[in-house]
Simulated scan of single mutants.
Amino acid sequence: MRLYVACLASYNNGVLHGRWIDASSDVDEMQEEIAAMLRESRFPNVSVPCPHCEGEGMPDGSTCHVCAGAGRVASAEEWAIHDSEGLPRCFGEYPGLEKIAAFVELAEEFDHLDADDVATIVDHFGGLEFAETEMRDHFAGIYDSFRSYADEIADEALAALDPESIAVRYFDYESYARDLKHDMTIVEISTGLALFWP
């Protein structure tokens, strides 16, 4: 999972300047990468504390070679996400790093799924918060087909009955699958169907 963060001051001046950064559950780590990219912009519009001496000067009393002792350096200020890999499309350009970190945590929690599949599920539910609830509380699993899931559920229920009963002998699997399908949410992902109970 990664995102391409673009400097908007550069973009507004017709220059493509940005950086691919790894999506992380650590917001500060991503923010540091973005800040470094903004300091490299050819179109600075603010000054920020020096990343080398943190505006405090060098511990040995020497002059900081990055800010020349000024304590601050030039930087661009605004950024946007212009591309991503493995992140939900519904996040758009300005999701906030906290939301990206929360998505990474969700993908790590469901590490038996590909991150792209988790992103597809989030997109299906229209946002991270609802998708988190569905995945944690209503996730039935991944199946090759809905019928295979319905047959499995029916077999479990029928196993508790007398095998000679009419209900077992004449059970209509197809009708049961059709009716069950109306109650569930089905999300098509790369490995099959992700199924969710209501």
Rank of each mutant, 00 (worst) to 15 (best):
Q31T: 15
E129K: 08
D155Q: 05
Q31C: 10
R19L: 07
Y149P: 03
E78V: 14
E32Q: 13
D155P: 02
A194T: 08
S148Q: 10
F110E: 06
R136A: 14
F130M: 14
R2K: 13
Q31L: 12
A160N: 09
A131E: 11
H65I: 14
E78N: 12
L3Q: 12
E29M: 12
L193K: 01
D151I: 00
S165M: 09
D116S: 15
I81E: 03
D155N: 07
A9W: 04
D123F: 01
L128M: 06
V48F: 06
I100L: 10
S41M: 10
R72P: 00
A9F: 06
E93W: 00
S10G: 07
M58S: 05
E93I: 02
C7E: 14
S190I: 11
V27C: 04
V187R: 01
D183L: 13
D137N: 08
D144E: 14
W20C: 07
H65T: 15
L16I: 08
D183Q: 13
V104D: 13
E156F: 01
N13L: 13
V122Q: 02
W197Q: 08
E56K: 10
D26P: 00
T191G: 06
F171C: 00
F103L: 10
D117H: 02
E98T: 11
A167R: 02
S24F: 00
F146I: 09
C90S: 10
H182C: 14
E188F: 12
A115D: 11
S148T: 13
D183E: 12
Y11K: 05
L97R: 00
W197I: 01
K99W: 13
Y176F: 10
G127K: 06
T191W: 04
Y173K: 02
G86F: 07
P198E: 12
P198C: 10
A101L: 03
E32L: 15
L87K: 03
A35I: 12
R178C: 02
P95C: 07
V73D: 09
S62R: 08
D144T: 15
G126L: 11
V168G: 06
E108H: 05
